[in-house]
Amino acid sequence: EAMRDITGWGSVVTIVFLTAAAVIYLALSGRRRVAVFVLAAVGGGEAVSTVLKLFYHRPRPDLVPHGMEVFTASFPSGHAMMSAIAYLTLATLLARVERRRRVKALLLVLGIAMTVLVGISRVYLGVHWPSDVLAGWCVGAAWAALCWFVALQLQRRGEVEDPDPTPASTGPGQIKGTTAAG
């Protein structure tokens, strides 16, 4: 039952909910262009996943009874791919706007851990071959890396918001370029 819960982290409903929550957070915190970028990155990844499944149309494993019902093709694992796309993209983009290094590290570790656990759950439940999950992880991680690179380029051109200053350049109660004394 725990594996079915974990596999749910890669479901469309969960991915849409968490992406919407991140987009709303970014928009409310004044990072509207980053919010639009996150929405486009995850939405574009979902489109890529759908096209790949339709193209390959690989049947599901039939070695063991499935631990849950499945309705789509097996290759690549949509859950593994979308968890990599959503969680790695969200983790990297949110880490870029976070000031504290420990929080940045936490975001990245959580994104990676959730992605790995979703993939493992898909094999455990017997609904994917390991190669389906590996392909999903690879394509999803590549998409997340591409999105991170595009965001970096847009940021350099001033088309998306700059990340907050790092803790090394700004301390508590300081504005960048000033000291506490004034």
Rank of each mutant, 00 (worst) to 15 (best):
M3V: 07
W9L: 15
T14K: 08
I15Q: 09
Y25S: 07
L26W: 02
L28K: 14
S29T: 15
R31V: 00
R33C: 08
V38W: 08
G44Y: 11
V48L: 13
L52C: 04
L52Y: 04
F55A: 15
F55S: 11
Y56W: 15
R60I: 08
P61K: 06
D62Q: 12
V64N: 00
H66W: 04
H66Q: 03
E69K: 13
F71W: 13
F75T: 02
A80T: 00
M82Y: 04
M82G: 02
S83V: 00
A84I: 02
Y87T: 01
L88S: 01
T89P: 05
T89V: 05
R100Q: 12
V103H: 02
G111M: 04
M114K: 07
T115A: 05
I120G: 09
V123D: 05
Y124S: 09
L125H: 01
G126C: 05
P130M: 11
W137K: 05
A141H: 04
A141P: 05
A142H: 01
W143M: 05
F149V: 13
F149N: 05
L152V: 07
Q153P: 00
Q155L: 03
R156Q: 15
G158L: 01
V160E: 02
E161W: 09
E161N: 07
A168H: 13
T170Y: 00
P172V: 08
G173N: 02
I175Y: 05
I175T: 10
G177Q: 10
G177V: 11
T178K: 02
T179F: 07
A180I: 13
G182R: 10
